[in-house]
Structures are given as C-alpha cells and as structure tokens.
Computed example of a mutant assay.
Amino acid sequence: MNSLTWDQVHARRLARHHLVKPVSGDLRKPVRDVCGVQSQVAAAAELAIGSRVKDATQEQVRAELYDKKRLVKTYSLRGTLHVHAADELALWMAAMRWKPYWRAKDSWHAHHGLTAKQGEAFVDAVREALDGECLTREELAREVSGHVGAWAKDKLASNWGELLRPVAYLGVLCFGPVRGAKVTYVRPDRWAGLKTEVKDQPDPEESAMEIVRRYLRAYGPATHQDLARWFALRPPEAREALESLGDEIAQVEVEGRKAYVLAADEGRWPSDPSCVRLLPQYEAYVLGSGPKEVVVPKDTAARVFEHGRGRYEGAVAHQIMLVDGVVSGMWERRERGGKVEIKLESFVKLDSGQTKELEKEVERVGRFYGAEATLSTGKLVGKKR
C-alpha cells in the first residue's frame, strides 16, 4: 500500500483540475476532467471554466454555451445545475438514472408522488411543448398543465424544479439562453442536435461506474463517504460502487487515512502543490475533494461560518483563494468605473513568490471580464445569517 502526504495529493488534484497549468483551446476538456461544473450561479460556472483555460474570457464561455452549443447546462450531480460537455450529456443523464429510486418497481413516478400514467403524460407534454421552442418556466408550466392538468403547473412553478430533474435525466430537457432575468428550457435534440433520450442513452449502471472512475481520477484518493457525498448516494451504495470496480482501484494511505485511487494512477504523484488561484463560488475542487478539514482547515471554516451564506453552505458559498490546494482566503468582486475591483481577505501570510502569483491571478480575472483589475485587502464584511 502506497503511503502519501497531503502535499502530494493536493499537487495531483490541482494538476488534474488544470489549476496549475490551464489547458489551451478547447473549453470542454476541463469541464470533462472535473466531472462537470456546478452552475446554480451562472457567473461562477463561467469563471470556473475560464480559470482552467489559458486566456479564456467570459464571452468565450458564453459562446460555447449559447452559440456553439458545445457546452450545455442541465440538472446533474446532487440534483444541482451543472455545465457538461454537450457530447457527454447522454452519459451523464444515464448515470443519474442509476440512482436506486430509478431502479425501483415504481421508478421515478412514485418518488415524485405521481402514478406511472401521470409521469408518462408529463414527459410527453414537456417533449411536445419544447418541440422547437425555448420557454421560460412560466411558459412551460402553462403549456404542460394545459395538456395534463393544473397539478403540473404548481410543481413546475416551484423554485426547486422538482419535476424538471427527472425530465432532464430522461434526456428531454436542458437549459437554453437566459431571457432577461429568466432562465429558459429547450430540448437537447432541437437545441443542439443531441441524441439524449433514454433510447439513445448508454446503460445507466455502466455510465455510473464510468463517472466513479472519473471521480477517482480527478478527486482521488477518496473514500466511499467522499464518493457518497459528491454523487448524493447512501454510503453503502457508494461502497458497493467502489467495490464493483475490483482490481481497477487500489488502496493508499494518506497520513493515516485510507482511501482509493485508480490502480493505473497509483504511482503517479507529483510533490510540489505550488499554486495560488482566485476561484468562484461552488468550485468543483472544493466540492469534490475530501476530507473537508484538509481542504478547508478548521480556522478557515470558522471564519467562513461567520460570513454570509457560509453559515449554511460552508466555503463553497464564497469566492475563495486557494493556496497550494487549501482554501486560504475569501474574495469579492465589484465592477465599477470600467474596472474590476477585487477585495481579498487572506487567512494566511503569503511569501514573495505567492504574492507574485496572486498578482497574476488578479490580472487574469480582469482579462476574463475584459477589464483592468485592482486588488485591495482587508476583512470582508457580510451580514450574519
């Protein structure tokens, strides 16, 4: 059994996330490699992608989503909005249908309080409503309820979109361009020419196991508890998923903690995690990497808890400074007078080399938004909630 340090683990995770050396060109590669980018805050997802691609701009990311349509936003991991590479959408939707309630006798219909007949009628109504159309939630609710009954309008109007998730997993719906302040929905086949419906999706179990492999590649070493939290599984289900990979995985020990990696990766461990990055809310690296106390140290977690939504969601609720793979500060951005003003609260003292890296990061964030960026430091002020 290999014995590793956390520095080695941070170094490889940073490399796999393209945070040490951003990729050139294809914006889909980092999205694939980090297993999708959480997008409940659209601007955060845009910056997360841009942070991993050399010289990327916000306009380029948006063009990939809404003009070239090579990236697509939909419901995915943990039932949360994610951006995925469009050509992998069927894989991800199939993997989401591997969840236990989809395999149960009554499938997703009963899980959402519907009969099988209601569920099938609902999906058919969404498919018809989005045939060549781009609809807001209100427009979609009106069209669908006109076909299946008023009950559908209430469920679709819910901010949680409880019935939008299963329809997305069935490959019938994804997100279209924003219309004013409102999101819109489209059909993947009509929007981007994608074959994503169930008949065109790969096997759910095989798809889920492929996602588990990708998770280990990007976030390993990982325990079954880490996987359960990330994939929204019960711990026994996550353990079973890991065990099903057999000799494809190997156990390692990281400073006393036993976890799993892909066997093919067992001997590939860089030693230097040097990296200072300014990253957005809901950053994939933080969401997927465990254990949390190693990525977000106790003192940092306490400060995060005091500030805004950190009390409820932890460090992922904030824009963060990542130093050598560890959350080491929070930052805020304001656009004023044609400039991007960045205010940073650092929880650590940066050496001269790290300070230079930070300055480059500030410049990079400015370029992403097409403006000059300035940096100030001090404690961030936010309301306790």
Rank of each mutant, 00 (worst) to 15 (best):
R13P: 01
L14Y: 00
H17L: 11
L19D: 05
V20N: 02
G25W: 03
K29P: 01
P30V: 07
P30Q: 07
G36T: 05
V37C: 05
V37H: 08
A45I: 05
A45T: 09
E46C: 05
E46A: 11
L47M: 14
L47A: 13
L47Y: 09
I49R: 03
R52F: 07
V53N: 05
V72R: 03
L77I: 15
V83D: 00
A86D: 00
A86F: 01
E88D: 10
A90G: 06
M93F: 12
M96D: 00
M96C: 00
K99Y: 13
K99W: 11
P100K: 15
P100V: 12
P100D: 07
Y101T: 00
K105T: 11
S107W: 13
W108G: 04
T115H: 09
V123H: 13
V126P: 03
A129G: 01
E133R: 07
E133Q: 13
L140A: 03
A141Q: 03
A152L: 01
D154Y: 00
D154A: 12
N159T: 15
L164K: 09
P166R: 01
P166H: 06
C174D: 07
R179E: 06
K182M: 10
K182R: 15
V183Q: 13
V186L: 11
D189F: 09
D189V: 10
V198F: 00
E206A: 15
I211K: 05
Y215T: 05
A228E: 06
R229E: 14
W230V: 05
E237N: 10
R239D: 05
D247Y: 04
A250P: 02
Q251V: 07
V254H: 04
V254S: 02
K258F: 02
E266L: 12
S271E: 12
P273Q: 03
L278F: 06
L278A: 08
L279I: 05
P280Y: 04
Q281P: 06
V286H: 11
V286S: 05
G288E: 02
G290F: 02
G290W: 05
V294A: 04
V294W: 02
V295F: 09
V295S: 10
P297T: 10
P297H: 07
T300C: 12
A301D: 11
A302Y: 08
A302D: 14
F305M: 11
E306I: 10
H307I: 14
R309T: 11
R309S: 15
G310C: 04
R311P: 09
G314N: 10
H318G: 03
Q319D: 12
I320W: 00
G325A: 07
V327A: 08
G329H: 08
G337V: 08
K339Y: 05
G353N: 13
Q354Y: 01
E357A: 14
E359L: 13
K360W: 10
E361W: 00
E361M: 01
V362Q: 04
G366E: 02
G366F: 02
R367V: 11
G370Q: 03
E372T: 14
L375S: 02
S376T: 12
K379W: 01
K383R: 14
K384I: 08
K384T: 12
